[in-house]
Design a protein around this nucleic acid. Structure first.
Lengths: 143, 143
DNA sequence: ACATATAGGTCAATATTGTTGACCTATATG
DNA sequence: CATATAGGTCAACAATATTGACCTATATGT
């Protein structure tokens, strides 16, 4: 790989890092006002996106331990953002859902990010939205 | 914003999160073998990309405190990956550079990411590389 | 019916990575 | 020569994760 291409790729790595960092800043600021952290946002986001998912599914999605989930999850339940109810098909399984209050907070947190992306994709067009998604998927499919 | 668009945007947020997480996994694995962490990679990356930059410039780039940089930087210097020398124009300023050993480690760490991105952009074409960069820049320019 | 597996909850000990505050040295500059 | 700047370092603390151990409740195969 020649020097010039290497520096182009370095710019790309730096863009990825700075973009991700910028992207989480505003939600982090809002979270702080509520006395909670980024994990809480992730939990709210994935529960919102997949209402009724189980604790185990959430753990697999987040790739953290049961013990690491425990404290923030308990806080979200105690603060009334999330409700956890036994599944009908198997009462050992807890189905997680947002309360109305939880939906409001999740909206407030993620809308910053959704609006930003929506605005950008409106500028660059839906074909380029698909391009961006395709590239991100290729990064994830890492075999 | 309608429900359908909201879910499309949720997919985008999830892709961003998963892509970033996947992207750092392999470097993290290599770092662990050397008994160091992700901050060390960031330091090596930005010093590599901008040889001779000052401690202060690095701090501004990373957006961490002097005290947070201190320990990993001292380790990198002690392990012989980075050298820190007074600048000619102002001897208070330390110019940071990679040693040969440091260049090897930085290559090993970042080449995983550079190769992956290079491969993907070879598949999707250089026009789409520019599209991806443009979108990431728009995320960063957050005014 | 009972042994075993699974889903989930919780406490404790520890590690890592960051913060702020305080204070030090060396060098530059008005 | 007073003051500002660049950088280094220690200490106290917070947050976020890990692993290990152990608990309850429920489901399932024999």
């Amino acid at each position: 790989m020649d020097k010039k291409r290497e520096e182009q790729l370095n710019e790309i790595l730096a863009l990825f890092y700075f973009a991700y960092r910028t992207f989480t800043k505003e939600p982090d600021r809002i979270l702080e006002q509520h006395g909670i952290q980024r994990v809480h946002h992730r939990i709210l986001f994935f529960v919102a996106r997949n209402q009724g998912l189980s604790v185990n599914e959430l753990l697999k999605t987040l790739e953290i331990s049961k013990q690491a989930l425990h404290t923030p999850m308990r806080q979200l339940i105690e603060m009334g953002y999330i409700k956890s109810e036994p599944a009908k098909y198997d009462r050992r399984v807890r189905e997680l859902r947002l309360t109305e209050k939880g939906q409001k907070l999740e909206s407030q947190l993620s809308n910053v990010q959704r609006s930003k992306m929506n605005e950008i994709f409106k500028e660059v067009g839906s074909k380029n939205e698909e391009v961006w998604k395709e590239i991100m998927k290729k990064i994830i499919d890492n075999e």
